[in-house]
Design a protein around this nucleic acid. Structure first.
Length: 883
RNA sequence: GGGCGGAUAGCUCAGCUGGGAGAGCAGCGGUUUUACACACCGCGGGUCGCAGGUUCGAGCCCUGUUCCGCCCACCA
């Protein structure tokens, strides 16, 4: 049995973590049994990049998940939290490429297989980093079920989904205009492009008509002026578009202009969709192969699509004299050439959106390319409907708008990447280029009757990383097999993630889950904020403002660190990391620990079966505990992590420590023989309070709570699997609440008088009041907390300070203790305050209010007014005694 | 261009369905009281961005507006 001497003077979170975490893990406490009873509660982790390391966003994200999982597990749910990592195609491949490049090796030099070996080696080397860091945070995910997006099972799921989509016509291969990253040398999806505002110029030049044209009014026109921010694209121009109703150009539609230095005639077409006659010259050069709008125009008018770029964005042979030049060099060269020809028609500054690759930062080039796409409209519709119908709910709800907005206008998803690291597309071609899609080469051969003598080669491309992430909620549970886990734990209960991946991930999981599982992948989606630095800046390595969660754990301990994140996680708002808050919560862990040490001194030989009587203090704190349980549950059930944390904080500090422990001391330290039952009552209450508190704080502070649990007599096993406290365990007690409230107000009143009149806490005081019975039995409390040594029946006598507690006068005889002026001044201040109070209440209780406000509200304010008026009357009476 | 947040005490932020404005930190004053000075006791401090409106009553609802931040978008 623990004695206080066994408990460290200060709580050591790190030591507790090192002691308990491995124990929990080895005992299999993170690993639920699908056959075990209990309603399932499932969370799948947003898989971090396998070779990444923990940042504050992860820390917040996983702390919140762990709080929920621990809470639900304790509350009787069959709780599963599936951890895992993502192969992060582009990101990981690039890291390895960079490492190789440092050794002077390019991936193409060593070839695909050798390169992939290097990536796997890197994955094996650094892949455990982040999961070990997560353990430091204390997360209770089931490491036995840890998955990786490229492990065997998940790769099978990817192939399966690909084939099914393909067979249903939802995946197709086509030549389309896509976003091309000329540095990464791969196609990327719309989401991977960031548009950056940039200053550029809108530069105009003239296309000469093939022959001067005499118009109906007799005038002659020989050129048409177009404007562009990317002059080099004129090398790929195959039309000039004007608005069909534009009187300036209407008569030119159908004629042609001559390309100034390429052997090409360019038709003038009418296009009402693209052309805004108000903008620029009202004529638009059309480059169908390098501009998304122009591409559409090209399709509408059957224009030739001329790709002028190589993969690295140098000009290809279609660039004529500029072939081989970089696109930006070509831009200047083309301009110079046109200027030299006297066709330049001026330029003006122009703000433009520069599309940049999220990964490489290079300027993305719209490029005509054959890629694989997922047809989105048929998948998006059910995904929207599921949220509209409430099968999945976002918290906070406003994010549903974001979700809808994206899905509503969604375009087909380009899923092929010209990378090596990732799931290779399950498609094969024979020598004639015939395409076969299947789960494996063997299946393709079998299904299509292709013998071993016929060579097949697999598509070189891999899939967008998010293609596999989209399957995460069911692929991790064993799909496509109907595993016990899948049956039991799908759909998951809640997804906890950041708003930045609502499109990338959440929406895609929604449609994948609906399509392949027939139901939503999660019931709730809790969207949490971004963790920023103190100035509200996004944390980034280049800014040097990154706070490393591991440093924070080392500094504050995982318990306080987690509590800080939870306490700061107000819905719908970014978290500005504030070390002062963390320091404050370190003190909170200390406070709990010290209080527990105190409790321990009284629980050494605690015998729960000993006869006991409960004091009003005992009943009071137990009732308050019940309220705390209720509020914490409501808060957690509503994903109000900060509310739950604040409730625990204020209950523990303000009520348990500041009041109950102090009030219980009189009993606990009493050596009166007849106080034994009361002592046992106080011990019972102490024990009960810490028994409950350790469980209540466990989801937030797993190690501290375990340390308490283990050292609390009469507990068994681990707090991790103890039942989360129920409201019903703690009876309400109106009488105790009232009684203690009276006592508290009296004590506070006395303390204030002491403080304001500078009466030393050592000077004992007497209270005089008309009805001392109201404080009967609270002599110890008054003595210990206010150093009031006597309460006598009677009115004002001699020089007294006067306080009004709950509408009754309380006198404190101060003969010889203070000077009268101090009490006068104090009373004047009180009266002024009271008057303000009364005035405000009278104003509120105007006729309109009385007539229209609900009667209980009116009654409430009337009572308040009466109290306030009474109080002022009493204070004024006290003041008169001095005048 | 469209959409979404935020603006509340010196600082950092809570404030759920409208019912006399809160916390932590900082500040000021006091206290070696038998768990804790990482503590205890007390105090001061806000026209809730601005202007209107609805209401008996608005930090909260409506309209407008200013600043900050974010997301989406093809005006050449």
């Amino acid at each position: 049995m623990a004695r206080i001497d066994d408990l460290a003077r200060y709580y050591d979170s790190q030591a507790a973590a090192d002691r308990y975490y491995p124990e929990w893990e080895e005992a299999g406490l993170f690993t639920p049994d699908p056959d075990a009873p209990g309603e399932p509660y499932t969370i799948v982790i947003p898989p971090p990049n396998v070779t990444g390391s923990l940042h504050m966003g992860h820390a917040l994200n996983n702390t919140l998940q762990d709080i929920l999982v621990r809470y639900k597990r304790m509350d009787g749910f069959n709780a599963l939290w599936v951890p895992g990592t993502d192969h992060a195609g582009i990101a990981t491949q690039w890291v390895v490429e960079r490492k190789l490049r440092a050794q002077g090796v390019e991936r193409r030099d060593i070839g695909r297989d050798a390169f992939l070996e290097k990536v796997w080696a890197w994955k094996d080397e650094s892949g455990g980093t982040i999961t070990h860091q997560l353990r430091k945070l204390g997360v209770s995910c089931d490491w036995k079920r840890e998955r990786f997006t490229m492990d065997e099972g998940l790769s099978r799921a990817v192939a399966e989904v690909f084939v099914r989509y393909y067979e249903e016509g939802l995946i197709y291969r086509a030549e389309r205009l896509i976003n091309w990253d000329p540095v990464g040398l791969t196609a990327i999806s719309d989401l991977e492009v960031d548009n950056e505002e940039a200053e550029g110029e809108l530069w105009s030049f003239a296309y000469k008509l093939d022959a001067p044209f005499t118009r109906a009014d007799g005038s002659t026109i020989d050129e048409i002026v177009v404007a562009t921010t990317r002059p080099e694209t004129m090398l790929g121009d195959t039309a000039v578009a004007v608005h069909p109703d534009d009187p300036r150009y209407r008569d030119l539609v159908g004629r042609t202009v001559k390309h100034p230095f390429l052997d090409r005639d360019i038709p003038i077409v009418a296009d009402a969709i693209l052309v805004d006659p108000e903008f620029g010259s009202g004529a638009v050069k059309i480059t169908p192969a390098h501009d998304f709008n122009d591409f559409e125009v090209g399709k509408r008018h059957g224009l030739e699509m001329i790709n002028i770029l190589n993969q690295d964005a140098t000009l290809n042979s279609h660039g004529g004299p500029f072939a081989g030049m970089d696109r930006f060099a070509a831009r200047d060269a083309v301009k110079a050439r046109i200027e030299a020809l006297g066709l330049s028609r001026g330029a003006k500054p122009h703000m433009l959106a520069l599309p940049r690759s999220q990964r490489s930062g290079s300027v993305v080039e719209p490029m005509l390319s054959t890629q694989w796409f997922v047809k989105m409209k048929p998948l998006a519709a059910p995904a929207m409907a599921a949220v509209e119908n409430g099968f999945t709910e976002f918290v906070p709800k406003q994010w549903e708008n974001t979700y809808f907005a994206w899905l509503r206008d969604i375009k087909d998803w380009c899923i092929s990447r010209q990378l090596w690291w990732g799931h290779r597309i399950p498609a094969w071609y024979d020598a004639q280029g015939t395409l076969y899609v299947g789960r494996s080469e063997a299946e393709v051969r079998e299904k299509n009757g292709i013998g071993a003598d016929v060579a097949l080669h697999q598509d070189e491309d891999v899939l967008d990383t998010w293609f596999s992430s989209a399957l995460w909620p069911f692929s991790t549970l064993g799909w496509p097999d109907r595993t016990p886990d899948l049956e039991r734990y799908y759909p998951t209960s809640v997804l906890i993630t950041g708003f930045d991946i609502i499109f990338f991930w959440v929406a895609r999981m929604m449609f994948a889950g609906l399509h392949h599982m027939g139901s939503v992948p999660f019931k709730d989606v809790y969207i949490h904020a971004l963790v920023r630095d103190e100035q509200g800046q996004k944390m980034s390595k280049t800014k040097g403002n990154v706070v490393d969660p591991l440093d924070s754990i080392a500094e504050y301990g995982a318990d306080a660190f987690r509590f800080t994140l939870a306490a700061m996680a107000a819905q719908g708002r970014d978290i500005l990391w504030n070390p002062a808050r963390a320091e404050g919560y370190v003190k909170f862990t200390n406070k709990i620990w010290q209080a527990f040490r105190f409790a321990t001194t009284h629980l050494e030989d605690y015998d729960p079966s000993a006869p006991r009587t409960l004091s009003p203090y005992d009943n009071w704190i137990l009732a308050r505990l019940g309220t705390c349980v209720k509020r914490v549950r409501i808060a957690l059930d509503g994903y109000r992590f900060n509310d739950a944390a604040n409730e625990l904080y204020s209950f523990t500090w303000d009520e348990l420590c500041d009041w109950y422990l102090e009030l219980s001391k009189g009993t606990l330290f009493s050596d009166a023989p007849d106080a034994e039952a009361a002592r046992q009552g106080a011990r019972y209450t102490l024990w009960t309070a810490f028994h409950a508190l350790s469980r209540l704080i466990h989801p937030f502070m797993p190690f501290l709570s375990e340390e308490i649990w283990r050292n609390l007599p009469g507990t068994e096993g681990t707090v991790m699997t103890a039942a989360f406290p129920q409201v019903e365990d703690f009876p309400e007690d109106e009488q105790a609440l009232t009684e203690v409230q009276t006592l508290q107000q009296t004590i506070v009143a006395v303390r204030r008088i002491r403080s304001e009149m500078e009466i030393s806490p050592r000077v004992p005081l007497t209270l005089r009041m008309a009805d001392p019975s109201r404080l009967a039995g609270h002599g110890n409390g008054l003595r210990d907390l206010a150093r009031v040594t006597a309460v006598v029946e009677g009115g004002r006598q001699g020089v007294c300070a006067t306080a009004v507690v709950q509408g009754r006068d309380v006198y404190i005889p101060l003969e010889g203790v203070i000077d009268i002026d101090a009490e006068k001044a104090r009373l004047d201040k009180e009266i002024a305050k009271s008057t303000k109070d009364v005035d405000a209440l009278r104003k509120r209780l105007n006729p309109g209010f009385r007539a229209k406000a609900p009667s209980h509200v009116v009654a409430g304010f009337e009572a308040k007014l009466k109290t306030a008026e009474d109080r002022r009357t009493r204070l004024e009476a006290a003041r008169k005694n001095f005048s």
